[in-house]
Design a protein around this nucleic acid. Structure first.
Lengths: 212, 212
DNA sequence: ATATAATGTCACTAAATAGTGACAATAAAA
DNA sequence: TTTTATTGTCACTATTTAGTGACATTATAT
């Protein structure tokens, strides 16, 4: 029977925690390098250099290990809303622009995040759903504290614009990672191509703030 | 040895072609209902009501059957550039808007297309790559014949804007199909939510034509 | 020192999966 | 009618996969 142990500092406890961590790390490594489809018990155990039996003993099931992994990571730490400036005089225009640019680069540079986005589109999994829900919550705070005061009854349209832009960033980066990197004639793997996207983002946000 | 047969109208030929078609249809059905990950020989054969041996005999391999399937479909028929009006007086503003709206609805209503988009993001497969390349070609004609004459040296930015909008439509529809359907607080499965997206698309395109 | 309980290893089962060889049934050709 | 070639069926192999029971090893408690 698996029971919660008091967190003594015994060798056994350390050993157990080390093994658990090795297994969680193996999940991350496989996810980054081969994607969610490669997350199979045998491979995870092999990658961790441990016996798969331990997965069942420590996590109950492969599914639980995967959920534990997802919940243990903070994929959005770079993006989260805790960077909201305290004083906002432009209705959030500068902040939103910066956030989108940063999000675009973060997803580009974070292979694991890309794989998670794809995973989330491909499989039903409660922990991934929860990720999405948490993101929605963070976004909601933003809309309520910054966007709504500025755009008032136009907030819904601003939401739609945000939805399109954010989704666009996700998809473009996923496409780049896997297929050829040309989209609408722009090379999404090149600095020039990506700068065009950033220019476009800035333009669209500026237009929205000026004319919505 | 598999050799090309003259297209006689013999019973054998008909039988063979019927079986091949049943197998191709089974691929489509599985793709629509369960996604690309469910495209396994045993399941395809079972869905077709035929022996899997025939897959190898008629297509050489499962891979080849899948490629044949992809190439046999015209996923973009609803969207293709053959709807370009002959006389354009607004630099394509109306046409581009209509196209995006239509594309948004088409992807939403076409489960198979959604699965193909996901497949394309998830696996390397020459036939899928070719799909993407063909789409690029169609787009290129549009950019050269309509967009460039109007936007001139700003064409690259317009490309970037298109890239963002089109990707956004793809991702939003994929997200809707699989996860919860709330994105940026809008319900992408509801008419209201989708209308907000369309309003936003129109707004962004109009702004681009007026102020880029 | 001995007993107990936990970690970790190994060999196994069972199911799913891809692919193939042998052969029956039958259409077309001789 | 006999021969030939093709369609379609079936049983089989080999591999991969998830999961488990038995047991050795070792740390902790008595």
């Amino acid at each position: 029977m698996e029971e919660e142990k008091p967190n003594t500092d015994s060798n056994r406890e350390k050993s157990r925690e080390k093994s658990k961590q090795q297994l969680l790390d193996a999940v991350g490594k496989l996810l980054r390098t081969k994607g969610y489809a490669a997350l199979k018990v045998n491979d995870i155990a092999a990658t961790a250099g441990l016996d798969k039996k331990l997965i069942y003993r420590y996590f109950g099931s492969t599914d639980q290990l995967l959920d534990d992994y997802v919940l243990s990571q903070d994929f959005w730490s770079n993006i989260k809303g805790d960077k909201v400036p305290h004083v906002i005089t432009d209705g959030g225009q500068g902040f939103v622009k910066d956030m989108l640019h940063e999000q675009f680069d973060t997803v580009f540079n974070n292979k694991e995040l890309q794989k998670v986005l794809l995973w989330r589109l491909s499989q039903q999994r409660s922990s991934l759903k929860r990720l999405a829900d948490e993101q929605e919550l963070t976004g909601e705070q933003l809309f309520e504290s910054i966007i709504h005061p500025h755009f008032q009854e136009k907030t819904a349209t601003f939401r739609a614009i945000s939805a399109i832009l954010v989704s666009g960033l996700y998809y473009l980066n996923m496409t780049t990672a896997h297929n050829g990197s040309i989209f609408c004639g722009l090379d999404m793997a090149s600095t020039e191509g990506r700068n065009e996207i950033k220019k476009a983002l800035s333009f669209l946000i500026d237009q929205t703030y000026e004319n919505l």
